[in-house]
Design a protein around this nucleic acid. Structure first.
Lengths: 194, 194
DNA sequence: TACTTGCACTAACGAATGTTAGTTAAGCGC
DNA sequence: GCGCTTAACTAACATTCGTTAGTGCAAGTA
């Protein structure tokens, strides 16, 4: 645990600090203090402050996107795929709470061209959800909805979990995912259970 | 328009900057530049940087809370009250986009005791929603749900609007509120329309 | 006319910022 | 033991930060 890749420890500490204080509110000296080294020593692991932000944002982005690719690879109906996507999203989010917070909120401090690349990555991810919704309509499972609007609202519910989830709280990530899925699906499904 | 209360113009400029760059990422000199005066001159209107944050956060907090008090004053069933609350929330949010963004995201940079006071204010607001949901259950309109969880998820959808709403976009605030209400209600309502 | 007030200015303070340069000590393969 | 790499250090850089002190001027008021 102590001998893990030190660079990774640094990234984790950075994510925690940036989650707490925001990217501009986190100084290299803060981070150094957390790592128990001098600020200058950070540059042994990292090229710049923004590099840290890049690595966290794009690293998490890849995680989310990979999980989604797996979901959409398997053949299931749209309802099941939506549930799987939600479960995967919540799993990754709760497993990397700090980094996910940075992914959701601090990416805007990226500078070009990383900023544009990041936005594209986010769009790709959202698109996967849009496809699931469209398939659901085609399959007659979901009401016809404004896809763009619906995806934004769904992702809002998912990402907001980052604001209140606490490990050791009274809901497991799986329970959260299931409740969210139920909440979302009952708002989409045409047929209803009594 | 030019002769409006200058202090208010300052607050609006501050909200815009803090929305774009975050609270720690917004310097008094940035704000001064936006106001076309020197940084020191800001202190003619304001005691400190944090004062600005306080005013924005608590000002918006009062707006949201007042609107909610009006909603809950009138007697309607829970479904109607929920719709009214959503409409009020979205109206205030879209009318004060920048300040609402600060209200939603930057309050954590408040220091004690303001921080605690702000959290209490937020809790009060959330409680009003919780009451509506509980009433809805009692009236037999809503499924029995985990109220705390449901309110968080609902507010997530509402507050996320701050991330994507653009005036001059193709949805009016009223349309957004209606769609959100529909989305939320269909996930809560026991009886369903074909 | 004399006094006050509102709103801006210049100059500067000490502290904090991201980053660079150069150094040092420990550990490892030859 | 020699040379190289790793991981830390000290010292310092130019800049920016929030904020204070003191000043000037124009408009309004007595």
């Amino acid at each position: 645990m102590e001998n893990t890749n030190r660079r990774e420890t640094l990234m984790r500490a950075a994510a925690r600090l940036m989650r707490e204080n925001g990217y501009p509110g986190t100084s290299m000296r803060d981070l150094a203090t957390a790592m128990d080294i001098e600020a200058a020593s950070l540059y042994h692991y990292v090229d710049s402050k923004e590099d840290i932000l890049k690595e966290i944002c794009f690293g998490m982005g890849r995680s989310y996107l990979n999980a989604m690719a797996e979901v959409n690879d398997i053949y299931f109906n749209a309802g099941e795929r939506l549930g799987m996507a939600v479960r995967a999203h919540i799993r990754i989010l709760t497993e990397n709470l700090d980094a996910s917070h940075v992914f959701v909120h601090e990416w805007r401090h990226l500078s070009e061209p990383s900023l544009a690349a990041f936005k594209k990555l986010r769009d790709d991810y959202e698109n996967h959800f849009r496809i699931i919704l469209r398939n659901g309509e085609e399959e007659g499972l979901f009401n016809e909805v404004d896809n763009k609007f619906a995806v934004l609202t769904i992702l809002a519910s998912l990402n907001w979990v980052v604001e209140w989830y606490r490990p050791n709280g009274d809901m497991t990530p799986e329970q959260i995912a299931d409740k969210l899925t139920q909440f979302i699906l009952s708002g989409l499904r045409k047929d209803i259970q009594a």
